[in-house]
Write a protein that binds this DNA or RNA. Structure first.
Lengths: 229, 229
DNA sequence: ACGCTAAGTTACCGTCGCTAAGTTAGCGCC
DNA sequence: GGCGCTAACTTAGCGACGGTAACTTAGCGT
């Protein structure tokens, strides 16, 4: 099943970097078809690009290094997907939802890539630099916009970003790891979770102070009872 | 570093099951000290109980089978921790918070156990049976109680249970995988996330219908602005 | 005392990540 | 246009892994 690419000309003198890109692409592709990160062997990747295993180590320190490169690649894709999903909206809440939906949907449609990026024990800080600089930063900005719009209480957006990220990660990770649970309509569930997280944070900020169960219950009771759409 | 236990008498005739329990205990212990599931080798476990590697296979079909046994063991612990954390409360919201807090705190204090139980690709359905029957079921009941108390809209509790579980799993998983992020006070963050998820679901139910960003924003605007504690 | 079989062993297979040491091919240079 | 230099590979192999086959040993019933 390991598709061997038999012939491969030795690269030109200056351009050994070409192989590096091919390796990353092959690893990414194999990873997408595979069940887990260590089901993709260095030998299989080498085989896929038509090269022997030790050649990989001319371009990557070890397997983690290769996986990090793949993840970095995938995360630039994720960032692009998030940006393109959000750029038609201007309202901060709309943008936040678009970001969150794009994030989760990307995660569940690239489960193994997402797994090694956000679920496996962090091999290299590199991965998280990418995560921190692009997608995370954009999300954090949007949270700040929600604050400015009075949706969240003013302050440092970072804790709220982390909190909302946790919600997005939770539903993505759980759907990936336990797809056989009775999720129902996937899009709807994601939307419900993200919406609840955002509205919950906003509402908790309105309640103010320490939101104890007792205070939360009392506050909820002041709201009008459920009315249909 | 692999502590060898040199002597070990052959077990009595009827009781080969003793070794099984010892193996599970040793694997659980090694797993707790280790960085990941496949950093714990069959050979290391065998060595820890003073036996050779193939003896493991007299009691477990393969490594996944052994890990499943460990996870089952750990999950009965988790269930006990959740029950004991909640049994001093009677109010459903209080109980839900106690459940959630106990769940997340157990997860982050047994990170590798939690990882193979809830973050790794499911090796055997066994693991999830345990998860479904004990902790999950108790949580689902509490959600039902919240419905009866008018906190959540009436209906099937399962979707809400999954939703809240996703929130708990999200913060637990993220804190385990990325402990170096600026979380601040751990207990407070967990509480914030769980509270936001619960209040958010309750509020979304009050809003009713499809909670679009526009409707949510409008609804939030009707609330009194943030007032300090 | 002796056979039966549970309980464990030794020896081994194929694969893994990774390394050391060798080989080959392209480029600059005289 | 031959030649050395070194980038770009290869072959060979190490130790550890999960797992299996086949052998040995010890306790029990008779």
């Amino acid at each position: 099943m390991t598709t061997t690419v038999p012939k491969r000309r030795r690269a030109q003198r200056g351009s050994g970097e070409d192989l590096r890109a091919e390796i990353v692409a092959a690893a990414k592709s194999l990873l997408a078809k595979s069940a887990s990160a260590d089901a993709v062997s260095i030998r299989a990747v080498a085989n896929a690009v038509g090269v022997t295993a030790p050649s990989i180590y001319l371009h990557f320190a070890d397997k983690d290094d290769l996986l990090s490169a793949v993840v970095a690649d995938v995360f630039t894709e994720l960032d692009a997907a998030m940006l393109s999903a959000a750029d038609e909206f201007t309202e901060p809440m709309e943008r936040m939802r678009a970001f969150g939906m794009a994030y989760v949907k990307f995660a569940i449609s690239h489960p193994e890539h997402y797994r090694i990026a956000a679920m496996d024990p962090c091999p290299r800080p590199n991965v998280d630099e990418v995560l921190a600089t692009s997608a995370f930063e954009h999300f954090n900005e949007t949270v700040k916009q929600c604050m400015d719009a009075g949706i969240f209480a003013e302050g440092d957006p970072l804790p709220i970003t982390l909190e909302l990220w946790a919600a997005a990660h939770g539903i993505a990770a759980l759907m990936i790891t336990k797809p056989y649970l009775p999720w129902g309509d996937v899009d709807e569930v994601i939307d419900r979770v993200l919406c609840a997280a955002a509205v919950g944070r906003a509402a908790a900020d309105k309640i103010g102070g320490d939101v104890t169960p007792a205070r939360a219950t009392a506050w909820l009771a002041t709201l009008a009872p459920t009315e249909p759409s």
